[in-house]
Design a binder for these strands. Structure first.
Length: 396
DNA sequence: AATACGGGGAA
DNA sequence: TTCCCAGTATT
């Protein structure tokens, strides 16, 4: 928190002392984003609302740092409805930190398949091993120790520390960014550094003395269920009377809408190489998209080189896997998006001809698998879709 | 400060 | 189609 320092000041409220944030350099008058009265009202109303409106979610059944941790990682950039089933299955397979640490990474990735952002799964697994070694398999309680684990940034550290251990730590994520921006009537870009600093400060200032974990969850719940991106349900909001954005009729304008994404169209090909009753997979390498997952040979093609698709398939598989093939049937066309790319994926079958010795550099790890064995390896979603077409093509 | 990283749900 | 989602790490 550069530019800020903490000090103990006499609070204007009923409490003798409170933590406050003051601008540096030290000034005698402590500035706050919200008045003491406002904060008190807000906390009380939010708490009452949450008691009534909180959803029953699988990671809320009991307070366990491991469960909180796994849920928080799964929930990064992923909606609650999507996570629920994955969370239950994952906890059944790996009920404890030690169980996760003892697991094979491929097994972890297989259970993560379809969730996306697979780095999360690899970092989760790596962190479990770190906890097993450095903390005796016991999830650390110290905020900085939590923060230093792979895959855990400021938000996730604050969420775990507060929810699992009731440590006084703020959180800031999609729901609370929107909620706090509206409670502050913050009209600038919330994604810029100045906006983030302001919102983190607000999140910290609002923390109650007790039950911080409940409070943080209540903030997110309100943002998620009531203070929604579009058409927020202000008539159901416990903070409506405290909300300057509602008072000004700006709920659709705050937070400021993001600049729209510039999507880029990309043409790619995936090739199912058949050799007898087996097909070829390659392991995506570190630094590559889908690192640690398996995929069919897959590469960018030039759609404009008309009539030369077969040549591109041959060249692509040779370059990527060192395998010479004879292209066969077209299996399917799959459209999907990856971050800012809009990919049109041409899926083709091909027959193995021969392996070409590769001089010098070693290529990716390769495997030949029978169709039924494909169920055991982690694939990305398009890879899994291709498996259906493979089954048909192979006549299984 | 900008960008990569996935996939699905909803309007 | 577009927007959005209980962010983190890297450049």
């Amino acid at each position: 928190m550069i530019g800020f320092r903490r000090e103990v000041v006499d609070g204007p409220g009923r409490h003798a002392q409170q933590w406050r944030l003051t601008m540096a350099p030290a000034s005698d008058s402590a500035r706050t984003l919200f008045s003491a009265y406002w904060r008190q009202q807000f906390r009380r109303r939010l708490r009452a609302w949450y008691r009534r409106a909180a959803r029953e979610l699988p990671w809320r059944t009991k307070r366990d740092a491991y469960r909180v941790w796994v849920s928080e990682i799964m929930l990064q950039q992923t909606q609650v409805v999507t996570v629920e089933a994955y969370f239950k299955r994952f906890l059944t397979a790996f009920p404890t930190v030690k169980a996760l640490a003892a697991a094979d990474e491929q097994q972890v990735l297989r259970l993560w398949e379809g969730l996306g952002y697979y780095r999360r799964a690899r970092q989760l697994h790596a962190a479990a091993r770190e906890i097993a070694e450095r903390h005796g398999g016991r999830f650390p309680r110290d905020l900085e120790a939590i923060r230093s684990l792979p895959g855990i940034g400021r938000y996730t550290a604050g969420a775990i520390a507060s929810i699992a251990f009731d440590t006084s730590a703020p959180i800031l994520e999609a729901n609370t960014i929107r909620l706090l921006a509206r409670l502050l009537a913050y009209r600038d870009d919330v994604t810029k550094a100045a906006g983030q600093t302001m919102l983190w400060t607000a999140a910290e200032e609002l923390l109650p003395r007790r039950d911080v974990g409940i409070f943080n969850q209540a903030l997110m719940e309100l943002g998620s269920l009531v203070c929604t991106p579009r058409e927020p349900k202000c008539d159901e909001c416990p903070a409506r009377a405290l909300c300057p954005t509602f008072a000004q009729g700006l709920v659709e304008a705050i937070p400021a809408p993001k600049a729209k994404t510039n999507y880029e169209a990309v043409d790619e090909a995936a090739v199912v190489v058949r050799r007898g009753d087996k097909v070829l997979l390659r392991l995506c390498e570190p630094g590559e998209r889908w690192a640690g997952l398996w995929d069919f040979p897959r590469f960018v093609i030039d759609k404009n080189a008309k009539g030369r698709l077969a040549e591109q398939l041959v060249a692509g598989v040779l370059q990527q896997a060192g395998i010479e093939v004879e292209p066969a049937d077209r299996l399917a066309t799959i459209k999907h998006g990856v971050t800012r790319y809009r990919i049109t994926l041409q899926c083709h079958a091909a027959h193995f001809v021969r392996a070409v010795p590769r001089r010098g550099k070693s290529g990716p790890q390769l495997r030949w698998l029978q169709v039924h064995e494909l169920a055991n390896v982690p694939l990305n979603t398009t890879g899994r879709k291709i498996c259906q077409f493979v089954g048909k093509w192979m006549g299984k």
